[in-house]
Design a protein around this nucleic acid. Structure first.
Lengths: 360, 360
DNA sequence: GGCCTTTACTAAAAGCCTTTAGACCATAAT
DNA sequence: ATTATGGTCTAAAGGCTTTTAGTAAAGGCC
């Protein structure tokens, strides 16, 4: 408060050495006589000196911080179990290198660009934005390395999962069980130029569903597609909207577990028996899927790994080792309680389906 | 990579002005002629200039980052739904001021102290550590403001909840229903000097339970107290340990929802009917409580608010307004599916209990 | 025309650290 | 005895920006 910061010069004076020596005492003790080094560290303790992270970063060009950029309100980020798992992966990789993690979301007033520009990080993990996106141009110019997650990139590393494959397997599972009246709940993307439903993970998953319909020669009907807010509440609304427009689905494909859980809740309220009268398949395999009642059949993606791998790729880029890699992680259909047991009918068939997704 | 950063001097040269003018163009455009300001901004765009956050922070003593310090492995942090909610609160307050949020956990190799020392933040929110804790001394000396959450402080602001009250109400609820064989699952705190079970939130909650036993004149038995790892798995193990040592509880008090959920799962496996044969009360009211089957009766604490308020207090401290405040938020017993409906017997009594916790 | 005020801009310092190149001294090698 | 070696330590530059104090020119006023 009142007293001004204690600087390296203060310590140097106290210990009767040059500032250089103090710096060496921290980073290069071997350069110093043992006795001197001790005297310096004693002065450090007495004065309670800690180097300014900013001055240090200014010269060493390293802060020890990895940024995670998610173009959503921070509230939305932490309500979404996907991000909890993802950040766990990123954080784990950070902790292994004694780094910490900066979470950057869309600000309430200012622009995302400003917040990015001011972020004190060594590099960024950018989630859900393609490389070409305007807001990230400044990063490139500032020379801040970044990697892309759930988005496309030609020039930097990216981590994605096989959304289309997973979605297609989910849809195929339902179609093989004979369903024709399948309600599809997709993301209603609220982000301007990302609005095109063929963009982003929502678009990919949708394409996967459609592919399965084509493969099974079942007609795709756009009226059975309901865009929903990406939350439990959104899923509930989506399902109700469907009912109100007169649809009577026997199965639901949801592009996220949250949406699926909402649909499940709404269905239970409307006295559908799940899975006997209504089968539901979600996406992601977040904690929601495991905990819902009954537990959700869903397409699992390795979320924690995704975060960890993204962080590792970024660390590679920071160390200037490794070149741009495009990782695509597998997805897997996890059968739980919102689909009927398929073993009786089509065990071999489904096993085949499930096997298409190994390898990285 | 190859090209070195473009600095303010480059822009100045390009626009034919001094670096000062460029700085003014950003922060004080009124000081400049309109035409000059435009020329400068044009040069900024052409060169793709972005000020270095570090140089800027060095002089302005502001980075726009709030740190959240949790003395646990980052993996553990993000597996815990409590922190998701808490960070949501902190993040919301950050976003409102165009700041971002740095999450600092215990590193794998290095020391917490080092990571703290290097963290580029304006201030810290410290969770679960008392003011006197060694690791935070450097912060005080470095002059980094901080607030304490779930811990005690004489000199800085703190945010806590009425853990004892909530725990006591939970225990009283069970005792009033006639339970005598109550299994108590507490935290097994793995952090050195925090190991004393009377420290930390675990200790407070334990004291609350014990108080209720005293009030109800029911003997407290230490063999019925099982320390458990703070996770679903930990709760499962804790319950099984109890069974193996021959305990046959009719009710469970768990100091967190995760532990309660684990106990619930283990109980279901062991063919206990919940709540008919076994009543369970958790703590926190995280998403786990709502989603478990049956949904968990629990002691709710306002987690998101807790985070938001902590951030706001820190922002106050940063702005040098307001003095150290001690906030204690209320807790509330939320009756759900793991306890039997109490209305029949003791409605008025329980309402009275629930009312003791309003006000901030 | 001399003095004062504005306006538009700049020089220089401050902010704090790391790193490079080199000084100085004592000891070992030739 | 002289040079090389190695161990300790320092001076000074560099990293990039903001801010304070101040200059120079233009205009207004008496």
């Amino acid at each position: 408060m009142g007293t001004s910061r204690v600087t390296i010069a203060d310590v140097a004076r106290r210990a009767g050495v040059s500032p250089t020596a103090v710096s060496f005492a921290f980073h290069n003790p071997d350069q110093l006589g043992a006795e001197t080094a001790q005297r310096i560290m004693a002065a450090v303790r007495e004065l309670g000196y800690a180097p300014s992270p900013f001055a240090r970063a200014l010269v060493s060009r390293q802060v020890g911080v990895l940024g995670v950029l998610v173009p959503q309100g921070i509230g939305a980020i932490f309500e979404n179990p996907f991000f909890a798992a993802f950040l766990q992966g990123v954080g784990t990789a950070c902790a292994e290198q004694d780094r910490s993690m900066l979470v950057v979301g869309s600000p309430v007033d200012g622009t995302l660009e400003d917040v990015i520009a001011r972020a004190p990080v060594d590099g960024f993990i950018i989630v859900g934005l393609n490389e070409g996106y305007r807001e990230i141009e400044p990063l490139r110019r500032r020379g801040v390395p970044f990697v892309i997650v759930d988005g496309d990139s030609e020039t930097v590393s990216s981590v994605n999962v096989d959304d289309e494959g997973g979605a297609s397997r989910a849809a195929a599972h339902l179609l093989a069980a004979g369903h024709r009246d399948v309600l599809v709940l997709t993301f209603e993307t609220p982000y301007g130029h990302l609005d095109d439903p063929l963009h982003g993970v929502g678009g990919r998953r949708l394409r996967g569903y459609q592919q399965a319909f084509r493969d099974a020669r079942v007609a795709w009907r756009d009226q059975w597609l309901i865009p929903s807010v990406a939350s439990v509440e959104g899923g509930r609304q989506g399902f109700l909207t469907a009912l109100r427009s007169g649809l009577r689905p026997t199965a639901v494909l949801a592009v996220s577990d949250a949406i699926a859980a909402g649909a499940l809740a709404a269905a239970a309220r409307a006295e559908f028996r799940v899975p006997e009268e209504l089968e539901i398949i979600g996406f992601d395999d977040t904690i929601l899927a495991e905990l819902s009642c009954p537990p959700l059949t869903t397409v699992r993606q390795p979320i924690v790994d995704k975060g960890r791998i993204a962080a590792e790729l970024l660390l590679d880029a920071l160390a200037d080792r490794g070149s741009a890699e495009r990782i695509v992680l597998p997805t897997e259909l996890i059968l739980r309680g919102t689909t009927r047991a398929p073993e009786i009918r089509t065990r071999s068939r489904h096993n085949k389906h499930r096997r298409t997704d190994d390898g990285v």
